[in-house]
Design a protein around this nucleic acid. Structure first.
Length: 259
DNA sequence: AACACTGTCAACCGCCCGCGC
DNA sequence: TGCGCGGGCGGTTGACAGTGT
């Protein structure tokens, strides 16, 4: 009963990827793209299942990935989006260029969820928890009105410069208050997010057929956010573009693999 | 120094969905 | 229209790192 496994598990390697395997995968996709994940492992000489290859690529090897923790703004955006979408991680990820659904999901479960609970917010419903605030040290975390000063840029609520020096995993009350205030004041944000029209920011980013992520230009073909099908098929599509796989690799360390 | 506990995140699993036949 | 296949998604697991005792 049940569905057939996605691949013959016999002889299929599992567990952490080695540098050698990463090399092979990158090399293959660089040369051929990934028109068929199922066939890719054999063609690339990998003893992995296609799913595993896809996951490895989308969640770790893709050149357009941002590395490191989510920024403050990204975190806010995730919270806002989650309030409206629920656990639609891929959709949420599609709104955060360079972030994967897996990454966001992990961050939600390990950081944001706890933060919201601590603030007295149900991470599922995004409503204030019914229970009495049992924390005596931060009972100031009740949802504030829109007193928090936010600056909206391109429809996305951003914090004022005063907090721009926040570093690392901000556990400060200011940060949490800020998050909270944004949850309750995100109408403008969502008019932007749900707009079917291309925003000016996007227009700019996608102009000239390239997609600008962190100052790096990527071709617009097949980029679709978090679950982006980044590699190009056929590879020649890159002709004439000022982007190369190797260029992008340099931004996130794939050169470690020898590219 | 050694052990226990906790946190993080890469990777896997199984179901769902869309597409082609 | 129904079926099978492949890709995608969300939930979960487990290994490892970090921290506390």
């Amino acid at each position: 009963m049940g569905r057939q496994p996605c691949c013959d598990k016999l002889g299929v390697k599992r567990g952490p990827w080695t540098t050698e395997e990463d090399k092979k995968l990158i090399n293959f996709i660089l040369t051929n793209g990934h028109y068929c994940w199922r066939a890719l492992p054999n063609l690339a000489g990998l003893r992995r299942c296609g799913k595993s290859c896809r996951l490895r690529w989308t969640n770790y090897l893709r050149p357009d990935l941002k590395r490191g923790l989510l920024s403050h703004d990204e975190e806010q955006l995730v919270i806002d989006l989650h309030a409206h979408m629920g656990n639609k991680w891929s959709k949420i990820a599609s709104r955060l260029p360079g972030r994967t659904d897996n990454e966001i999901k992990n961050h939600w479960n390990t950081h944001i969820k706890k933060k919201l609970v601590k603030m007295g917010i149900d991470p599922v419903t995004h409503q204030a928890l019914n229970q009495e605030p049992n924390n005596t040290d931060d009972n100031s975390m009740e949802p504030k009105s829109s007193s928090t000063k936010n600056v909206e840029t391109n429809g996305i609520t951003k914090e004022n410069e005063s907090s721009s020096t926040v570093t690392g995993q901000n556990s400060s009350m200011d940060s949490e208050s800020h998050l909270l205030s944004n949850i309750y004041n995100d109408e403008q944000l969502f008019s932007y997010l749900w707009s079917d029209e291309t925003t000016k920011a996007e227009e700019t980013a996608w102009s000239d057929g390239n997609y600008d992520i962190g100052g790096t230009l990527y071709p617009d073909s097949n980029i679709s956010g978090g679950g982006a099908d980044f590699p190009i098929w056929p590879p020649q599509i890159n002709k004439g573009k000022n982007w190369t796989f190797q260029d992008s690799c340099q931004d996130f360390g794939v050169h470690d693999f020898g590219f």
